Structures are given as C-alpha cells and as structure tokens.
Amino acid sequence: MSEHDPTACHVCHRHAIGVGIGFTHSRDTNPKWICHECALIIEDVRRVRNFDAYEIKTLDHVDEKAGEYVGELGKTDMASMSELERRMLWKTVVQEFGNGLRSLIREGAPF
C-alpha cells in the first residue's frame, strides 16, 4: 500500500498511509491501514478493542468545534453560507472527528 492508494484510516477514516496494525499473517487481507496522525499514537490505538464507544463520544467534540466555526461565521442557515464556508465546515467536522478520537484514545477514556 502506498500513501497514494485510496484507503481510509482504520481509526479516524481519513486518508491512510502505508502503515498497518493487526496484520498477523501473510494470508490476512486487511492489515487495518492508518493515517499519519494515528500512526503517531499506534501503541494507544492497539489497545482499543471497540471503536464504537470512542466514535460516539467523539461526536460531542465534533459538535462543539463545528458549532464554534458556525458561530464565528455568524450564520445558522447553511443556505446562507457560501460554497467555501460550507466546505470549510465539512473540513472542520472531518478534522475534528480525527483529532477528538485520537485525544480520547490517548487519554484511555473509560466510558
């Protein structure tokens, strides 16, 4: 796998690079590729068994950050946003999902 292949990170779902976790045998078909940011916390990632709880908790972080962005724009109606403003909102959501998820994983958050 090269970083040019269109594969999503096993952890945060952003673009993965050629680093994988969980590849235990040559017959494994999915080594669970991860992105650069998640590779930096690979030891913490390895101990997470169920990402669902982390993903659900991360939505609180995403909601807060997206709300801050929209608040800075002073707009509450997406129809009133320019194309760039809407794209930046979605970029904020995607980036903050990964950032929030990695933060929870590093903290070892017990739910």
Rank of each mutant, 00 (worst) to 15 (best):
A79P: 00
E107T: 06
G22V: 04
R46Q: 15
K65T: 07
E72Y: 03
E83T: 13
M88F: 02
I34L: 07
V70C: 11
R49Q: 11
E37D: 13
S26Y: 12
G74N: 03
D77S: 15
L59S: 09
I41N: 06
I34R: 02
E85W: 03
I56M: 13
T29W: 09
K32H: 15
F97S: 01
S82Q: 04
L84D: 14
G100W: 00
M88R: 11
E37I: 05
C35H: 08
E96F: 02
G74H: 12
D77E: 10
K32T: 01
D63H: 12
S103E: 14
M88W: 00
A66L: 08
H25R: 14
A66R: 06
D52F: 03
I105L: 08
L101N: 04
R27N: 10
R106F: 11
F97W: 09
E43Y: 11
G67E: 05
I56S: 03
L101K: 12
S82N: 13
L89M: 11
L101I: 05
I34M: 10
E96Y: 05
L40G: 15
T29E: 14
T58Y: 10
F97Q: 05
G22W: 01
E107K: 10
R102F: 08
M81N: 02
G67C: 13
L59I: 07
R46V: 01
T76F: 13
E72A: 08
T24P: 02
D63N: 15
S103R: 08
R49W: 01
E68A: 09
L101A: 03
L89F: 12
E64Y: 06
C38Q: 00
G98E: 04
E64M: 08
N50D: 15
P31K: 08
H25D: 13
D44C: 13
M81F: 07
F23H: 13
R49V: 03
S26H: 08
E83L: 09
V48M: 07
G67M: 07
F97Y: 14
E64H: 11
E72H: 14
D63M: 14
G67A: 10
K75D: 05
M88E: 15
Q95N: 15
V94L: 08
E64T: 12
S82L: 07
L40E: 15
I105A: 05
H36Q: 06
G22P: 11
N99M: 11
V45Y: 06
N99A: 07
